[in-house]
Design a protein around this nucleic acid. Structure first.
Lengths: 174, 174
DNA sequence: TAGTGCATGTAATGCGTTACATGATTTC
DNA sequence: GAAATCATGTAACGCATTACATGCACTA
C-alpha cells in the first residue's frame, strides 16, 4: 500500500498493543504529539486503509454496551513497520514562526528585537512545562527508546533556553 | 487582509529591498528555507494578494528585454510587518520522522536501534554541511538578527550531534 | 548550439486541521 | 441530573508541494 505520513505513527502504536482509533489519538497526544501530530481526520481513514492492506485487523470489542472497534497489527504489518524502521533517510525539517520573526527583527528598535529573543526563551519554557506535565509520575519505566525521545525533547528545550540566554548576553554586551 | 503563513516571509523579504517573485524564491532558498520553506505556488499568488491589500506595489522593471515585475513594500506594508513582529506567541512545532523512528526503535534488535541513532547524527551532519554551503564567504557581514538565526541553525546541529553521541555512549555503557 | 539561468505563472494533488454530528456510559 | 469521558466518523477548508507550461537571454 501507499504509505503516507500518518501510516507509521498508527502502525507503530499498534505494534505496542491493540488499540481503538480513540486510543490511538490519545496515545499520539500523550507521547508523540510534540514531534508528530495526528488528528481524527487522519487516523480513522488510515485505519481503514491499513486494514484493507492487511497490515492490521479490526474486531468489534464489546466494552460494556459501548461500541468499540479494536485493531491489532498482523505479521505483514510488523514486517512493513520493520522495513520502514530500517530506512535511514533523515532530513530535518522545521517550521518555526519565532525564528522567522527573529530573522526580520533588524526592522525593530534594538530593545524590541531583544524582546523577541526573550519571547522565544519563554516559548521553550512553556514547551518544557508541557513536556513535564506529560510525565504521569507512575514510576513505570518506559522502553529505552521511548524514554530516549522524551529525553530528546527535554534536552532540546533546556538547550534552547540556554542558547537564548547566551545570545541575549552576547548582543547586549556590545 | 487575511494574513497566511507565507505573508510574512514575502513581506519581510520585501522590507529588505525590492525584489521580483523569482528573487524572493531564491532568497527564501538561500536564507530561510531550513526553518520556513516557500514555493512558487505560494509566492506568486501571495504577491498579488499583498498588492491588492496595498502592502506592496509592483512595477514592470525592464531588464534587458526580459520581462520582470519588481515589488516594493509600502508604508502600510511596513506597518503591518511591524505589527506582526510585535506578536510574541511562540509555539514550537516540529515534524521529525527520524524521532518517530527512534520512538519505535524498541521493536528492533539493539544494534539496529543504535544504528537509527547514528543515522540521526548523520542527518544533523548533513544539515550542518548544507548550512555551511550557504555561507558564500563574501565577507559582507549580515545584519545582527539575520546572523543570529544563522547561528541558531549551526548551533542546533552541533548540539544535535553531541546529543546523539552522548546518548549512544549512555545506551552502550550498560 | 546547447545548456544554464532568469522569469512568470497555474493546475492538480496531497496533507492535515477544524469543526461538526452523533450517541452511549461513567462519574460527581 | 449534569458534566466528563468514551467512541466513531465525515465534510469543508486551508496550506503547501509538485509538476507542468512558456519563453527570453546569456555563456561556454
Amino acid at each position: 500500500m501507499e504509505a503516507t505520513a500518518v501510516t507509521w505513527a498508527v502502525l507503530g502504536l499498534l505494534s505496542q498493543r491493540a488499540r481503538s482509533g480513540y486510543d490511538i489519538k490519545n496515545a499520539v497526544d500523550r507521547t508523540i504529539r510534540h514531534f508528530w501530530a495526528a488528528s481524527y481526520g487522519q487516523i480513522y481513514p488510515e485505519l481503514k486503509r491499513l486494514e484493507a492492506a492487511g497490515w492490521i485487523e479490526g474486531a468489534d470489542a464489546a466494552n460494556g454496551g459501548r461500541a468499540r472497534r479494536e485493531y491489532r497489527i498482523t505479521a505483514a504489518g510488523r514486517q512493513a513497520l520493520a522495513d520502514w524502521l530500517h530506512g535511514t533517510e533523515t532530513r530535518i525539517e522545521l517550521r518555526d514562526e519565532s525564528l522567522l520573526r527573529l530573522f526580520f527583527a533588524d526592522r525593530l528598535p534594538a530593545e524590541e528585537a531583544l524582546g523577541l529573543l526573550r519571547a522565544r526563551r519563554e516559548g521553550y519554557g512553556a514547551m518544557l512545562a508541557y513536556l513535564r506535565s506529560l510525565d504521569d509520575g507512575s514510576g513505570t519505566p518506559d522502553p529505552p527508546f521511548v524514554d530516549l525521545v522524551y529525553r530528546w525533547a527535554l534536552d532540546y528545550c533546556a538547550w534552547g533556553i540556554e542558547w537564548c540566554d547566551r545570545q541575549e548576553q552576547r548582543l547586549t554586551s556590545r
